[in-house]
Nucleic acid binder design. Structure first.
Lengths: 232, 232
DNA sequence: GACGTACCGTACCGTACGGTTCCGTTGCGA
DNA sequence: TCGCAACGGAACCGTACGGTACGGTACGTC
């Protein structure tokens, strides 16, 4: 499995042609689901031969794995500047990551790949689910964890276990939106930024150091409240 | 599709034999995934004929749908007694529902059925996902919502939009445990009751009416703190 | 200009699965 | 006892898909 993976060579593309094929496969998957992702279909959509597919990816599972790593390589988030300090800066950074997370998770390609991995989970040893977790969750967790620990070191927030704090923030941000989307519930329009701000504010009310949080009450219904300070 | 569903007749079982077949199918699905859930396999495991399968369920999709409603009919939560009032009672009821939710969501059958529905979901109306949402999420949401609104009416908690409060509580309780399990991450041992208590306490700190919450700080790392009053 | 490489397009094969049909048996009511 | 409905078991069919093999073509290299 995982015949010729991009991640091992590091860097960027396996080859331009290969990536074009993967892109076609992703399109096919997004608009047709796993049923549409046949080897013949991919070959037809990408104008390549099945023989090339098997030469490049070794296997259908190898193709699926390559699709996941390929998509992950496109979503690499830029390392945000860690310039300013203070609570407003921390809040702004958290909101930024949370907004990005919400946008990624509700993207069509992400949904399709997660559906694929979940549908095949536990069936094979070649676990696509682990691949998705490694390339999807782990980067987010490390980014958020380092940020949270920096905030704790700066005395802005307090918590014992980093993972607990991260998990709470994740829950506040994503709620059950992800599973609902995966189950096929039509995505209702919403503002990722507003949701992220709301969730981060809730998180800060739970984990903020004693007197850093300003007004006690916060209306949770309406979208973006006016108490958001601008990014410094 | 959905040829002969149990839910329409209300009550209980379609027939004893039918339910036994569905039970066999669930076992097959849990331990083999969708790949193992072939019509021939179900017939063999249940000692029935494929002809009977098609007579009872009309279709493979009908069988899948019947499995979902059948499983849902087994999980019907008992209507909890709404006797006592006051914050400790509210907290206890919330913790009870949250604990139950965590146990159900991490159950093998629930995981397998959710994987099945998600794997077959697409942007078009693939109904299994909707079925899972209707029989899984909606009951929880209505139970929690009525409870939350009762708490608000009693002046114990405050919120504008019920759905927002519900969603926040859901996120605090479940976090991303569900998706991780669906992706095949091995379930690590944890105490649903302790997690539920922690989440409900966090929720009450966010939505509790002004002076009803006692000590301000709360350690989030350790499991079940000693500040939990017994159920009245 | 011969050779090798990389690739496309397509035909082909084996298999597995959904769905159908047929037959034998059991059991129940008239 | 007869008839009939329900059911189990098994054979069968059509199709779709993963995987392979083969022929043909463009291109670079000696």
């Amino acid at each position: 499995m995982l015949a010729t993976e991009t991640a091992e060579t590091g860097h960027e593309a396996g080859s331009a042609r290969r990536n074009a094929v993967l892109e076609s496969a992703l399109v096919l998957l997004v608009e047709g689901g796993e049923r549409a992702l046949t080897t013949a279909g991919v070959a037809r959509a990408a104008n390549c031969s099945k023989e090339s597919l098997y030469k490049w990816f070794g296997d259908r599972d190898g193709l699926l794995a390559a699709m996941i790593t390929f998509q992950a390589s496109k979503v690499r988030a830029e390392p945000q500047p860690v310039g300013a300090t203070g609570l407003p800066a921390l809040r702004a950074q958290l909101v930024g990551i949370a907004t990005n997370l919400l946008k990624v998770l509700s993207g069509d390609v992400s949904i399709a790949l997660n559906r694929l991995a979940i549908g095949k989970a536990r069936r094979d040893a070649s676990d696509l689910g682990q691949l998705v977790l490694d390339h999807g969750r782990r980067p987010i967790e490390t980014r958020l964890s380092t940020l949270l620990e920096a905030g704790r070191d700066a005395g802005l927030i307090t918590f014992d276990a980093t993972h607990e704090a991260y998990a709470t923030l994740y829950g506040l941000v994503v709620r059950d939106m992800h599973v609902r989307l995966l189950l096929g519930e039509p995505k209702q329009p919403f503002s990722p930024a507003a949701r992220a701000e709301q969730a981060v504010d809730q998180f800060l009310r739970l984990f903020g150091a004693e007197k850093t949080i300003g007004p006690a009450r916060e209306r949770t219904g309406s979208g973006s409240p006016n108490n958001a300070p601008d990014i410094p």
